[in-house]
């Protein structure tokens, strides 16, 4: 590991009551990489995402972004007794950092959701434009009195450009929820890109897509990665997608990392096959 990873998880554990959803997970994403997180249903993939994005505060562990800790946690209160994970003593002396999701996004980590979460009452255009709000410098007074016209114009132009790139411009004034499923996924990616992230987290981007669409999506993800200089961490069940488009893969089961490496290594690893590939997927 010569280069500095853009994202690094160290011993991240998430425990809900007595259930350890993510157990001592360590992983990293290098700049410019597409890294996949795979595992059977309920393995804790989305929980790991939520720990990175500030939706959950992990019970234990550290998340670093661009070399700086953005989330730090150790078991506290009741969890001190209940804690069933490992390495609890490691971070006891560290001061916890528990940011809200918007702070994480402002640092440059954007995400999409497993169950699409577009803003229902808004048009396609407004969905992307609203994601730009975070970057706006105007305050509520200058916004109300339309004093920041230059910024408004710039935001609208950037939004148009993003929509054009995603072939969504012709749906500009349609309600986001009136789009077909595949396009809604694209719109969610466009919305995430509108926050100008450095790291993009995609939660099952190809869910519900046929092989043709999945292939197109994979090419598209590779393309935006190059164009925006992104690093990408994604969760996916489509094995051909994961194998074809990711540089490295982490496989988890019951919250624990069982194997990591290049797609070839993963595809031939007996533990992964046992836990996942051979059993629940026959592609």
């Amino acid at each position: 590991m010569s280069e500095n990873p853009i994202l690094r998880l160290e011993n991240v554990t998430m425990q809900f009551g007595g259930v350890v959803a993510v157990n001592n997970l360590s992983l990293h994403v290098n700049p410019g990489e597409i890294v996949a997180l795979i595992g059977p249903n309920g393995a804790g993939k989305t929980t790991a995402f939520n720990c990175i994005t500030g939706v959950y505060q992990p019970t234990n562990g550290i998340v670093e972004f661009e070399g700086k800790p953005i989330v730090v946690a150790h078991p506290e209160g009741k969890m001190k007794k209940l804690y069933a994970g490992e390495n609890a003593e490691l971070y006891m002396s560290r001061h916890p950092i528990d940011p809200t999701p918007d702070k994480i996004t402002k640092l440059g980590i954007a995400r999409t959701f497993q169950n699409i979460r577009l803003w229902k009452s808004m048009t396609v255009f407004d969905n992307v434009l609203t994601a730009k709000h975070m970057l706006a410098k105007q305050n509520v007074f200058s916004a109300t009195l339309r004093l920041a016209r230059a910024e408004d114009k710039q935001m609208a132009e950037e939004t148009e450009a993003l929509l054009a790139e995603q072939d969504l411009l012709k749906y500009r004034d349609d309600l986001a929820t009136s789009l077909p499923y595949g396009l809604q996924r694209r719109l969610e990616i466009a919305r995430a890109l509108a926050t100008k992230p450095k790291l993009l987290l995609l939660d099952e981007p190809a869910a519900g897509m046929n092989p043709q669409e999945t292939q197109e999506l994979g090419e598209f993800v590779a393309q935006i990665k190059e164009k925006y200089g992104l690093s990408i961490l994604l969760i996916e069940h489509h094995m051909d997608f994961v194998m074809n488009f990711s540089d490295r893969i982490y496989a988890i089961d019951f919250g624990k990392l069982i194997c990591s490496g290049t797609p070839d290594v993963i595809a031939n690893d007996q533990r992964v096959i046992d836990a996942y590939l051979g059993v629940s997927e026959d592609e």
């Binding site: 994005t53 939706v55 809200t100 999701p101 918007d102 996004t105 402002k106 954007a110 995400r111 959701f113 979460r117 577009l118 803003w119 229902k120 009452s121 808004m122 609203t130 994601a131 709000h133 975070m134 970057l135 919305r191 995430a192 509108a194 926050t195």
Partner: peptide, 11 residues
């Protein structure tokens, strides 16, 4: 419309 999405988009 969606608090979780709003928060995830930096609001």
């Amino acid at each position: 419309d969606d608090e979780i999405a709003a928060e995830a988009m930096g609001i």
